[in-house]
Amino acid sequence: MIGTLLSGDLPRSKVLSVVMVAILLGLALAPFLFPGTRALNTAATICVFIVLVASYDLLLGYTGIVSFAHTMFYGIGAYGVAIMLDRMPGSWAAIGLGVAAGLAVAVALALVIGLFSLRVQAIFFAMVTLAVASAFMILASQLSGLTGGEDGLTYRVPRVLTPAFKLFQDKLFGVRVDGRIVDYYLVFFAALALFLLMLRIVNSPFGRVLQAIRENPFRAEALGYRTVVYRTVANGLGAGMAALAGVLMALWQKYTGPDTTLSLGIMIDILLMVVIGGMGTLYGAAVGAVIFILAKNYLQGLMGAASEALAGLPLIPHLVHPDRWLLWLGILFILSVYFFPTGIVGRLRK
């Protein structure tokens, strides 16, 4: 049963199995284990980024495609729903239309970019995607009538996804189950389904061909596989998954703007999460997303507490001052790459 659900791609490491079960249970029970707006927001962000990072790993880790346009597809999905909900507030039809439009635009754009530029060397494809993503970000900022420009769009989601909605009259395990928690579970189960779907894809015959292309495209061609076609389809699949992650984020945040969906900073975060977790394994995407987002959300607070606790000591309180959290995040990244060159999951699976 579990083997079928995971498409035969089991964690193959006791430690990794425990980590994955802990992540699954932690996210599944987050509203009850970690009550509070900030914790729930962190858990929802982790769910969305697991999908986003896994979809990027489909390109980078499984197919060997370096793309800088992934946040563009993420943004297209988010803007699809945001624009529709802005026009038809609180409507499920708007969400349906937004998902369909965002998905269609993202996949079509990815296929066009792929067909025209995946024939060239990897570095040129990376440059093309960087240029297209930058142009798209400027376009989204300038088309303020449609996208809200730099301010972005704030919109109303269906009432069942708002805090005003109460699923049960009484509290459940001490927590009032309102629309916010319903929204969280929508994000959680959608993310889980998309993750399992991606596991199915990478463990299918199609996924094997992608891995063969990553290892040696000439050998794959000599076996009769048209590498451009496979790469282009992988690019379209990755874009579609990223767009769906954008949809989930749009439904969770109820706000979509260029900084939260299209920025190069998010692209760099995705790259870091893939590298930390381990390329070429979707479990790595999950581990990388959890570690990175937890560090980003809580490292500063932890350092503040540590700085106060060590106030009497020389130098150390300054080193762990909360203002230096980015420095420590960088050091953590360097250490993780040094000790786990194949990523955490790559190391655990050895």
Binding site: R208, Q211, A212, R214, E215, L223
Partner: peptide, 13 residues
């Protein structure tokens, strides 16, 4: 294809 199993190498072909 070093990253694929013996079986997967043959299935690909």
């Amino acid at each position: 294809f070093a990253g694929l199993t013996v079986r997967e190498n043959l299935v690909l072909a």
